[in-house]
Design a protein around this nucleic acid. Structure first.
Length: 224
DNA sequence: CTACCGATCCCCT
DNA sequence: GGGGATCGGTAGA
């Protein structure tokens, strides 16, 4: 029986987040494709979730969150990063899943080029020159190319213009596909979401971050 | 190793 | 006018 990704995304966001682990993220420019396996995500609820962009209701930025599931909600942070979310739940629920880390499978060179390009157009601090940042990226291990939400955005050339795109369109330039289902499913783990201390302890402690245990592409390296 | 800090800009209050 | 669903460099323990 084929897995219906659209149906899974239309369900409650926490379940949808778990289901997105292992799915493929694809940037297809028509001639070549960048493909990676989603290995880390975070669930964001609707207006009641004080960590969610929907916490203050509908605004210009978060309009797409209130649309139907399966769309891309893209936002910019800190003046230099773009982050990709997948809208989940029933239309109007305003819940979404943030894609935090992707394990590169194909189009690795294109991912590296995209990250170098973004490094060259961005200044991170007065100590890190663009040239030095680009040099660092060219020596980065493959598994680190799309590790972290900002790096996913850079490696897959996520732009603000991608906001509202249908990720379930099989012919779309940015899309999701069901991952290879052969073999036993890898163990998954969960923990608190990252970078949302402002939401207060009750929401910040909620274990709504999910990841595939042992993946080398995780944004938070396992302690040892 | 942890802790801190800056870059930078759009959006919200 | 203020701050952020980040990232990577540096300082210090």
């Amino acid at each position: 029986m084929p897995v219906d990704l659209g149906r899974l995304l239309a369900g409650p966001v926490v379940g949808a987040a778990r289901e997105l682990l292992g799915a493929l993220l694809i940037r297809d420019d028509g001639r070549s494709a960048r493909i990676g396996r989603i290995v880390e995500v975070e669930a964001y609820g609707g207006p009641e979730d004080l960590a969610s962009h929907a916490r203050s209701g509908r605004t210009r930025r978060n309009t797409t969150m209130f649309a139907r599931s399966g769309l891309a909600y893209v936002y910019g942070v800190y003046g230099m990063h773009t982050c990709l979310n997948v809208v989940c739940g029933p239309e109007g629920r305003a819940s979404a899943v943030l894609v935090r880390a992707v394990e590169p499978l194909a189009g690795v060179a294109a991912m590296r080029e995209a990250r170098i390009a973004r490094a060259l157009e961005t200044r991170r601090s007065d100590r890190a020159t663009p040239a030095r940042a680009a040099d660092r990226v060219s020596n980065l291990p493959v598994a680190r190319l799309a590790s972290g939400p900002g790096n996913v955005g850079a490696a897959f050339s996520i732009e603000r213009e991608d906001d509202g795109r249908d990720l379930l369109d099989p012919a779309g330039p940015l899309r999701l596909e069901v991952g290879p289902s052969a073999g036993p499913r890898s163990a998954t783990a969960s923990g608190p979401r990252i970078g949302i201390g402002f939401a207060g302890p009750a929401w910040a402690s909620r274990p709504w971050r999910f990841w595939i245990a042992g993946s080398p592409a995780l944004s938070v390296r396992p302690a040892r």
